[in-house]
Design a protein around this nucleic acid. Structure first.
Lengths: 198, 198
DNA sequence: TATACTCTACCTACCAGTAGGTAGAATTGC
DNA sequence: GCAATTCTACCTACTGGTAGGTAGAGTATA
């Protein structure tokens, strides 16, 4: 009475919420936060819009969970690359963004949320900022690691360089969307990274 | 009945349309194309929403006129700097973006429209692309000018560098919005431009 | 009087969110 | 072991509000 019914029900329990969040991520990164609605997700999921409110009390809350998801994914990722050299870490960072861009019209979550920033609910604004500073901190630390490892120039301004990397990746994905040429982000990043080396 | 009424009415003739377009630009660059409505503009303008349809048959058409405006402003600007050196031209380009960023929460029009791209009407998508390629062409030519002038490195890849400049400016303004630090765009650009010189 | 401009009044479609209900599974009390 | 109850995972039907857009009347100016 459990083995069999489990196989039937297992996937339609609490991970329907996960499915919804996954869809929301797709829509967020392709259409922006104001570009999709509960209806959009409900239709894709095959349930009613009202039922989504069973999982998320409001769109704002769904947005907050979305960012929390991105954050924990980033933390997981950075733990996985923790033992690499600074140069390798940056290479992996670019790969991650390249993977985003490969999925067609996707752009990076922080980029979308920054564009939509002024229309976002207050709590989401704060979360977006926090997420940004988290990513920035990681890049700064990685650049400092590279200086200690003597692979990066000692006079590298890690803060400005971190901003530069973020802007390049964020802006790069957006150019990619417009032009469809998959390799421009890679080329751009390598043009930037060149100047780091000692 | 004319002298006096003129001073009162003069500005409310055909340039009411210009006023509307100016407001639309503000809203576009702060809230995105889906972040404002005819209602928003009508309220700010002190007229009814329906009256706006006298000037713009649809929001799509208003969007198209908006981009046309940006385009002609860009052409005017590039004509004005035509006689400068390549290095000076790039400096002026940065100044233009800095001026945008100074107006608080403004980001660059191409950046916004790229973020909203997938929700845009077809004709607007095409216009956005055209505008992008126009800007790109200008930067490529300017970089080539700099190579001829022997101020820029001869092995500079003008196409990739043009993309890099655009991504940096576009992404930079977006970081600015999030962080509020006005000088990061300037610093980032100078960090990039450094590597151009011979 | 003609035309330029703005209005009221309305439309349909969609938005986020709420009220209240239900089938069935899980848990509890005896 | 079985009935009473509660919880899960949805549902239908609706609210108030906004979106883009239209028809046609009213008003001002030349």
């Amino acid at each position: 009475m459990n083995e069999k019914s489990n196989s039937l029900k297992n996937d339609s329990k609490a991970d329907k919420k996960r499915e919804a969040l996954q869809l929301a991520k797709t829509y967020l990164q392709t259409l922006g936060f104001n570009g999709f609605s509960f209806q959009t997700i409900a239709d894709s999921l095959g349930i009613r819009k009202a039922s989504l409110h069973y999982y998320f009390s409001s769109k704002e809350e769904m947005g907050l969970e979305l960012i929390k998801d991105y954050e924990s994914a980033y933390k997981l990722w950075s733990a996985k690359v923790a033992d690499l050299s600074a140069a390798q870490k940056l290479e992996k960072l670019v790969s991650m963004f390249l993977k985003i861009s490969e999925q067609g019209q996707y752009i990076c979550p922080t980029g979308v949320l920054t564009s939509d920033y002024n229309t976002l609910p207050a709590k989401m604004k704060k979360k977006v900022k926090d997420f940004h500073f988290m990513q920035r901190e990681w890049i700064i630390e990685t650049l400092e690691q590279g200086k200690k490892e003597r692979t990066f120039r000692q006079d590298l301004d890690t803060k400005i360089t971190a901003d530069l990397i973020m802007a390049t990746l964020q802006g790069g994905l957006q150019l990619m969307r417009l032009r469809g040429e998959k390799d421009i982000v890679k080329k751009m990043c390598h043009a930037v990274f060149e100047s780091f080396y000692a």
